[in-house]
Write a protein that binds this DNA or RNA. Structure first.
Lengths: 203, 203
DNA sequence: TCCTTTAACCTAACAGTGTTAGCAAAAGTA
DNA sequence: TACTTTTGCTAACACTGTTAGGTTAAAGGA
């Protein structure tokens, strides 16, 4: 490949990331509802159709952010899990990390779960379900096996759904209807729910 | 008031409900994203500005549906609670009823919680928080008091948040990312989560 | 009955949105 | 230099929500 072609690819890449970072800035400053192709075009000082040379449509831009979000949260969860060898501790750490990600990256979380963000087919950028399952299922099975109740694998499947539901439920209620209670109380609710859940696994 | 004025009020009311029922039909057939003022106007065979004689703007129409949704779910919850005198049974019945409402009225639920529906300030049509609290808090306090752990009132406040989070979490995960598992398994997850939660209140 | 006021209803427009057809200029290739 | 590809633009289309302004019909008062 010629040296010129290389430069052009580099420039193309640069424009793409320029579009993305500009779009992201608009989102963080004005929210998802306020993001439009024209606003991006204005901000990067190009005409509107140029955007379409780099992204098929608006959804493609959103899906790119969705991908970033999922990759980000998965990295955090993996790090959290690695922080301990005890399965119960691992579950708690994962829950804490997930919670922290959601509130430190509200824009991502809202997009990923279609909360107030413009509707788009997030499935298209979701990682395999197995990624999340592998992270959470293993410590669960371990806990259930230690407590010796029957079919740990089957049991864990049920508990796995419950685990994510509690987490997502806690977060999305706080996000949609932010109550007037303190940060401290919120953390307490998380702790109560998750430790209660883990205790239930054991007993 | 003259007989003519009465008729006019009646007609005005009729037009309002005509707009609403027509809009609702569009929503159930094509989803929230597809609802537009022009579509409503076409369907009722009037020009667009007529809609604005009956509703201040589009959000006002959405809020009307929001109000209907909240009133509907509250009625269901009250009926569920009345089905038993045992506090634990009451909580289970409320959870079941809430779950049933969500899946029998997906359009309402999505609007009420901003899931994929057009964004609007739902606070404006939400009932007082106390309505939900009064329904759920009382049986909780009763359960905790029977089990005799310390400050039941304070404790119930924490558990109250957890209760709704679990419920909403279960529902919204199933709604956003409908898994391939059966109706039966879903019910099992609900049962597991709620009975686990109640057991935790007691022990 | 005639006149005036008010309510109902419409056309046409404004300012946005996502998206695309088609053209001009620049850049790369032979 | 001549040809081809890429790049970027203007202008438009088909939609949104919303409103200004005018017309027609109905209601109330003399």
């Amino acid at each position: 490949m010629s040296i010129i072609a290389e430069r052009r690819i580099r420039e193309k890449e640069a424009m793409r990331t320029n579009i993305l970072t500009t779009a992201w800035q608009i989102v963080t400053e004005e929210g998802w509802q306020s993001l439009s192709i024209r606003k991006i075009a204005d901000a990067i000082q190009y005409s509107v159709p140029v955007i379409y040379d780099y992204f098929e449509n608006k959804e493609a831009i959103l899906l790119e952010f969705g991908k970033q979000g999922f990759e980000g949260v998965i990295a955090e969860l993996k790090a959290a899990k690695a922080s301990s060898a005890d399965p119960a501790e691992q579950l708690k750490a994962i829950a804490d990390a997930y919670w922290a990600f959601a509130f430190n990256n509200k824009e991502y979380y809202q997009l990923m779960w279609g909360m107030g963000a413009p509707s788009c087919e997030m499935d298209k950028c979701m990682p395999e379900r197995s990624v999340f399952r592998d992270l959470v299922m293993a410590p669960m099975i371990e806990i259930i096996e230690k407590a010796n109740h029957g079919d740990a694998e089957n049991n864990a499947c049920l508990k796995y759904h419950t685990f994510w539901s509690i987490l997502h439920g806690l977060i999305s209620i706080k996000m949609v209807a932010p109550a007037d209670d303190t940060e401290q109380l919120n953390k307490l609710v998380l702790d109560d729910a998750i430790t209660g859940f883990i205790k239930n696994l054991k007993s």
